[in-house]
Structure formats: structure tokens, C-alpha cells
Design a protein around this nucleic acid. Structure first.
Lengths: 140, 140
DNA sequence: GCTTGACTTGTAGCTGACTACAAGGTTTAT
DNA sequence: ATAAACCTTGTAGTCAGCTACAAGTCAAGC
């Protein structure tokens, strides 16, 4: 197999084929070469690209951010230093998210540990902690 | 100070006051007691609640999920075991997010490390890795 | 060779999460 | 005491990210 029509690509990548059009519009997926008939003929890599997009999205990146990530690859004008810098910024961004999530998880885990698991919720430490907002990274 | 009008609460919590209405509709913020005039009088805790909502949202929880988190506290019928269970599910959910993000970060960091930071992007390992989709948690 | 299904473009609608506007009542500041 | 600022409800619009529909073209199976 060499190239894929829209529907095939959509099926393989597990997205709606209309989504492909949308991504094309948004500049996340290049308009691929066409056959005689005008049908799009997507190269195999498109599958990876789509999986990447979907993965990044699940991790909380917006389509614009995903585009940025993808541009690291495309921009021929940018030199490696530029790519490095952008990548480093992304790492910092990711790290922030991780930390906030860890904070949240630790608080929850601690509370689960403290909570006996019986009786009414009136004196459950989880609930109290949430009231005292020990639960999320405080924004002072 | 005892209670806050809508505008004050919005300002303190750093959200648009219309957002408060919206959250009320969505059941994330209870309709507070009213004064003579019908004005809402929010208790101080509302600030924490809002900060919690915003924090959770930034971590990628939807408003429905945030509501669920908040319900851990509100549901008087639920016993501690129930709360515990819900909390544990949330922890698992958070942990998944963390792992995916760590995977992404590690891949990026590794690539930054390998990348010299000079020359054109044509042979940048970051870009190659993205093409070979070693970049995101593979979904087999 | 003809039907059925997949493709094409264009346009319109949907959900989530807000955000803005309108028409009126209230509070506060001068 | 009166204008400005803020509250009330209702309704409508916006932006992201899809998703669906329409009218027509092409191709694959029987």
C-alpha cells in the first residue's frame, strides 16, 4: 500500500473523516497530492501525524499548540537552536502541568489514606481539605 | 467582611462575573442567600471554590468532572467509602495524565539533549523523532 | 453498465465554556 | 436628589473543535 484516501486514513487513525478536512483547514495536516480524479492521496506518515495530534491534544495542548509542535519539524528557516528553544519551552510547559497534577494527586492520595472509609461524609477529611483548599496549587 | 456581591466575588476570584452565573446554572456554584434587594450574598468560601474550579480546569478537567470532584464534598447521602472510591478513581485518572505527560517530556528532553543546537533543521533529531512518532505514547 | 458507496467542495449546526447585551431595579457617591 | 455604578433576569453571540448535510463527481462490485 502506498497512499490512503481520506476515509481510509480516517479509519486507520481513528478519527472522523470530516476532522481531516478541519485539520487541513487549520493547517495541521497538509493538503496531500491528488490522483487523477482529484481524490486526496495521503502518505502513510499522515497516520503518525494524526496520532501525534490526538495524543498531544489529550495531554491538554490546544490545536494551535500542537501546530507549534509540528512546526518544529517543518520550518526550514529555523535553525536547530530555534527548534531547541521551542522544545525547551514546551518541556517547561509540560513540567508545570505535571507538577500541578502531582500536587493534586498527592493531596487526594493523602486524604484517601487518612479517610477511614466508613460513616457519613460530614467529617471526611477529603471534603474538609477541599473546603480548606489544600487541594490545589494555591494561587497567592 | 461577611459576604460578597457578585462583582466583588468575581474580582477577587479573578473571573468574569458572568462566569459566576454560568457556574450557578451548571451547578458548580450554589445559588447563595440573597439580601433584601434580591442581590446575591456569596460567603467567603466561594472564593476558594472558584479557585478550585479554575485550578482543576487548568489541569484538564472538564466542568462536569470538576462538579464530580466538588460533589465528593456535597453529597450527604454518600458515605465515606463512596467518597473514597470516587477519590481513588480520580487519582487513577490524574496518574494517567501525569504518565502521558512524563512520557512526552522525557522524549522531548532526550531529543533536546541530543540536538546540538546549530545548523539547519534538516537533520535535527527532534524532528526525526517526531516523524518516527517516538514522541508520544504509542497507541498500538 | 449500473448501482452503491466514497470522494469533492461549500455551508451550516453542535457542544463546552464562556461573554455580551438589553431592560429594568438598587445602591452609592457626589 | 440624581447620575454612575452595580445588581437582577433573559436571551443571544463567540470561540474552539468538531460533525453533519447537500449537491455533485468518481470508482468498485456485481
Amino acid at each position: 500500500m502506498q497512499s490512503l484516501t481520506r476515509g481510509k486514513l480516517a479509519k486507520i487513525a481513528g478519527v472522523n473523516s470530516e476532522t481531516l478536512r478541519y485539520y487541513e483547514q487549520r493547517g495541521l495536516l497538509p493538503d496531500p497530492p491528488r490522483g487523477e480524479s482529484g481524490y486526496r492521496l495521503y502518505p502513510q506518515e499522515s497516520v503518525d501525524r494524526l496520532r501525534f495530534i490526538k495524543g498531544a491534544q489529550e495531554l491538554g495542548f490546544t490545536l494551535d499548540e500542537v501546530k507549534e509542535l509540528l512546526l518544529l519539524r517543518v520550518n526550514e528557516d529555523a535553525d536547530k537552536g530555534d527548534v531547541r528553544l521551542r522544545a525547551q519551552r514546551k518541556v517547561a510547559q509540560i513540567e508545570q502541568k505535571i507538577q500541578a497534577l502531582q500536587c493534586m494527586r498527592d493531596a487526594l492520595a493523602q486524604l484517601i489514606h487518612e479517610c477511614s472509609g466508613e460513616g457519613p461524609t460530614s467529617d471526611c477529611p477529603i471534603l474538609e481539605a477541599m473546603e480548606n483548599h489544600t487541594f490545589y496549587p494555591t494561587t497567592p
